[in-house]
Design a protein around this nucleic acid. Structure first.
Length: 264
DNA sequence: AGGGTATGGTAAT
DNA sequence: TTACCCTACCCTC
């Protein structure tokens, strides 16, 4: 589920459903009891997303930091909401909606100094107006690691995940093993723009859709292909068998024909 | 029932 | 680089 687009969508939704309300909080699982007691019956004043990090701004200058990791999930229910399951770490109950949070990597109060330190080590987030892409350009220029590894590093670009990195490189025809520092400025700006556009589409559609043509659902094939290479056995652009390999600690999909090494 | 996998990240080595 | 965290789902047995 969660790359940056998910978190930004979540921030908007939470704001829309809850902002300004006093929420009741508890931790059915017991693992976040202290946190729940600290915020329960306080007013949720706002939300923020930065990369894959979500911040709930509560009354009394309290901020809850949530990172979903790979498994984390928020479920939203209209009242009356069902009972939480054993996996529910935190429950937030508002007037019209209830949220159940399960499986997050992080869910805790964060103080301003900690938040500052966290944001400092994140690269620019293409979904934020205050993003400074020059920082990403500079850090790419310092790295010899494969471009596919570099753009997954949250210190370089915040919010990009394993699906989008594969898709962006495929659409641009970039060899994933090209050293990051070899990306010239012109291609960097193309990359930055494309990432921003894809992520923004993801926020709007609430899911990752990088491939539109050929994605028409056919009755026999209910699950339309929404990616070019990620999770695909064949490249959606040329039909060549995709390849996969661990790059930057995650499974990368790419098309050897659309993304050949430079000069070949 | 049990194994493998998943759009992520941290800490230890 | 590896181990580990953590939940849900899908496949096979």
């Amino acid at each position: 589920m969660p790359e940056g687009h998910t978190i930004h969508r979540m921030a908007r939704d939470h704001r829309r459903w809850f902002a300004g309300e006093r929420l009741e909080a508890d931790s059915p699982q017991g693992r976040a009891t202290e946190l729940a007691e600290a915020i329960s019956s306080l007013r949720l004043e706002g939300t923020d997303a930065y990369g894959k990090h979500l911040f709930h701004r509560w009354e009394n200058d309290l901020t809850v930091h949530v990172h979903l990791g790979l498994f984390g999930r928020f479920r939203r229910f209209r009242q009356p909401a069902p009972e939480p399951t054993a996996g529910t770490r935190l429950r937030l109950v508002g007037e019209s909606h209830t949220l159940h949070l399960s499986g997050p990597t992080v869910c805790r109060l964060i103080d301003p100094a900690e938040e500052d330190a966290l944001l400092t080590r994140l690269g620019p987030d293409p979904l934020r107006r205050d993003a400074d892409p020059e920082r990403a350009l500079a850090s790419l220029g310092r790295r010899r690691i494969p471009i596919a590894a570099a753009i997954l590093d949250q210190r370089v670009i915040a919010g990009l995940g394993n699906v989008y990195r594969a898709e962006v490189l495929n659409v641009m025809g970039v060899d994933p093993f090209e050293p990051a520092r070899q990306l010239d400025e012109e291609r960097f700006w193309e990359l930055w723009t494309l990432i921003g556009r894809m992520l923004a589409d993801g926020v709007r559609e609430r899911r990752i859709v990088t491939r539109r043509n050929g994605a028409r659902p056919i009755s026999r094939t209910p699950r339309a292909r929404s990616t070019w290479v990620y999770g695909q056995s064949h490249c959606g652009r040329c039909g060549t068998a995709t390849r996969t390999e661990d790059v930057g600690g995650r499974r990368l999909f790419w098309c050897p024909r659309c993304q050949p090494p430079k000069g070949s």
